[in-house]
């Protein structure tokens, strides 16, 4: 009996990794988790604004996806599928509970003041002055707070478009919305963010 050929997972497309996962290779499961744990967790965390809960929902998302990997349709992007499930999990939770008022400064796992400081949002180039750095860091926190005040649908749209960099067509697929609606939501979300940020600065 010949041993299976070693696979360089990083060279494979999502579809190819999924084929290995469907064949039952645990390494393929782990590769899918490695590729998507960060964007999925970040998206869910920004949606629900609770660290422990975001971890649970991200875990639930991956378990759903991997348990149903046989039903994945390769004509869709894998990223669309997993973001769709993650977003649905977050939206479902938001509909059940109203958790929009928690702080989102720093890393989700920062426990101490130093850790929070070290992981607080960094915006701008390395060449900025200390004053600019403070201003940009403050802007990052303000943006996070403002995103948290958007309607969940707007929040999903703006995060997928401008934080995750997904094209409009994929966002429409993820959210099961017409393309025009996605564009409208993103446009309105940007307008609301501008207004919220202006209010914050004036306040």
């Amino acid at each position: 009996m010949t041993a299976p050929t070693p696979v360089d997972w990083r060279l494979l497309t999502d579809q190819e990794v999924v084929r290995h996962a469907v064949a039952g290779r645990e390494a393929a499961y782990r590769e899918l988790i490695r590729r998507y744990q960060r964007p999925v967790f970040s998206l869910v965390f920004r949606m629900v604004r609770d660290r422990e809960l975001a971890e649970d929902l991200a875990q639930e998302t991956f378990i759903k996806v991997l348990n149903a990997i046989d039903s994945y349709r390769p004509e869709y992007k894998f990223s669309s599928w997993i973001f769709k499930i993650a977003n649905n999990a977050a939206i479902d939770h938001l509909r059940r509970r109203n958790l929009d008022t928690l702080s989102l400064d720093g890393s989700p796992h920062a426990e101490t003041a130093e850790a929070i400081e070290a992981t607080t949002l960094q915006i701008g180039s390395d060449a900025e002055s200390p004053l600019e750095e403070v201003a940009n860091r403050e802007l990052g926190s303000q943006i996070e707070e403002a995103i948290g005040q958007l309607r969940p649908e707007y929040r999903s749209c703006i995060l997928l478009r401008h934080v995750e960099g997904r094209p409009y067509e994929e966002i429409a697929e993820i959210l099961d919305l017409p393309l025009g609606t996605v564009k409208t939501y993103i446009h309105r979300a940007r307008n609301e963010l501008r207004i919220l940020l202006a209010d914050t600065r004036e306040g």
Binding site: E26, Y29, R30, I33, R34, Q37, R38, P39, F41, S42, F45, A54, E55, A58, Q59, F62, I63, L66, S107, P108, H109, T119, L121, Q122, I123, G124, N136, L139, G140, I143, E144, I158, H162, V163, G165
Partner: peptide, 19 residues
């Protein structure tokens, strides 16, 4: 500003918990 917002990893051992 949105484009450069940071992203985060879940806690260590996430893959093991999923599996």
């Amino acid at each position: 500003a949105l484009t450069v917002l940071p992203s985060w990893d879940p806690r260590a051992g996430f893959a093991e918990r999923v599996i």
